[in-house]
Design a protein around this nucleic acid. Structure first.
Lengths: 142, 142
DNA sequence: TATTTTTTGAAACATTGTTGCAATTAAAAC
DNA sequence: GTTTTAATTGCAACAATGTTTCAAAAAATA
């Protein structure tokens, strides 16, 4: 029996294999851009909103996905490079690009968030770099 | 008759002087950190939620305040250096610091968001730099 | 002070975040 | 392949936030 990619990922994180988790993970695997809870709900049909919410939290805690901060008021998530991220310990230092046109947010692995020296008295745990602009898709369209 | 700082600011932006606007602007003037709609509601007492919401939108459009992106799902706003920002044209390039401990978000004028060259096909309108960590206040406390 | 234009406040509704709990299901044990 | 055990789900319920419409109230102007 060959396991799907999503099943394998779940196994590797020692998470129970459930329908919702497979469906959600499949969606992340098949999408380039970061997905919001709403995006996922739309794709999933009539899945339970609360279960989805908890699934996302579980995935984030296990290091499967990370928040893609893009300056909007909607939380979006993207797949982690799962080889690096561990439970409660993320290693996603790349920038996120948010298109003002289509609203999609994507990871930009090529650009890293800068490493800063904290001002006196402060300590820094993580820096995020958010880029706003127009993506190549929308650039062409206009 | 001497005009208050908030009245002057409103006048300069050609906004009508109303109670709500003065109160909200006074709050921004007297706080270091960025304020969320909820923060403001708490300080304002029983002000109308919808009016506050619209006041913030108006202020942002006129260039009085800007969104302080901090990676949380709550929108927060901070005063602009009003000499630079104009309606629909912001010049706030500084980083924002978010304290994981107390949750406060502050502008870090000393640190600027990096200027990046866009990947082929993309265009960049603005970059945001968000710093997470512990502020000097909370550092001492722990 | 009267007129005009903007702003406010209420009602109403959608979306999102969040918890508690009983029913269900997955994994482990037998 | 059942049974047991432990985690997950789905529902109810609630709080916070975002957003529009429209008549009433207030601010600026004449």
């Amino acid at each position: 029996m060959n396991m799907s990619a999503s099943t394998q990922l779940l196994k590797a994180q020692q998470l129970r294999i459930t329908d919702m988790r497979i469906k959600v993970l499949d969606l992340f695997l098949s999408h380039q851009e970061a997905l919001s809870q709403n995006d996922l709900e739309n794709s999933l049909g009539e899945a339970d909103r609360i279960t989805l919410y908890r699934t996302l939290r579980t995935f984030e805690e296990s290091g499967l996905i990370h928040k893609a901060i893009d300056g909007t008021d909607k939380q979006k998530y993207a797949l982690c490079k799962h080889t690096q991220c561990k439970p409660n310990q993320h290693f996603d230092h790349h920038a996120h690009f948010h298109c003002d046109d289509c609203g999609k947010t994507t990871c930009v692995e090529e650009i890293a968030a800068p490493i800063l020296s904290p001002p006196p008295g402060f300590s820094i745990s993580k820096t995020h770099l958010v880029i706003h602009g127009t993506c190549s898709n929308c650039q062409v369209a206009s």
